[in-house]
Amino acid sequence: MAEQKTIRFKIRRQDGPDKPSRWEEFDIPYREKLNVISCLMEIQKNPITAAGAKTTPVVWECNCLEEVCGACAMQINGQGKQACSALIDKLTQPIVLEPLTKFPLVRDLMVDRQIMFDHLKTVHAWIPIDGTYNLGSGPRMPEVTRQWAYELSKCMTCGCCMEACPQVNARSKFMGPSAINQVRLFNAHPTGAMNKHERLAPLLDEGGIADCGNSQNCVRACPKDIPLTTSLADLNRETNKFALDRWLRK
């Protein structure tokens, strides 16, 4: 009988935020069309390293398993990717799994991406529609706008763009391209446009749009192919106009 084909994993393990990290290797029996999550599930069922030592199951996050929730982002072979849509047949081995580096570590491959949601609050990434009486239906959105705005709405707050961005790090307060992109999305909406200024103003602050360094890694790293650099440049124009206008009216 032919030898059983296996998949080799090299995983960076860490039991907690203040614990030391270590590497562990695993061999998973090969099957066709596996993805990184299904392999992690194999490890969970049988947490034995390649050397035969018993260990704890690797901790990771996942939810939708169809690349829409963002939860399973991790470094796969050195780049931030969604583990659920990372197909084993397309990856070079050993497959190296590490946690994202731009967020506080929880355990193993699990990080806390709360800061991204805080940034969404900072830029008011929502449309206020509640009133004390029925406000009626809002203005219609032009179909041409809807088409490109839909692309921006695909963001799942995964953090792959943050991981790739050289301007997002411990020494900088940069909010990263995803929250900025949401400003363009909500400002494009005819009802959202009524509160445009509330979203543009935070972009002028420290950590806002001016901290982008134009490396354009984000647009290449985004698993949802969101035109992040187009959003950044568009909002550069909008924030310039907004800042000048606000100043001239002082």
């Binding site: 050195g78 780049q79 790739a164 050289p166 301007q167 790090n169 411990a170 020494r171 900088s172 940069f174 901290d211 360094g213 134009n214 490396s215 354009q216 890694n217 290449r220 790293a221």
Partner: peptide
């Protein structure tokens, strides 16, 4: 305030 990652993301612009 920047932190290069050009060894992980080897793009021309990076």
């Amino acid at each position: 305030t920047g932190q290069s990652n050009v060894l992980r993301y080897k793009y021309a612009r990076n």
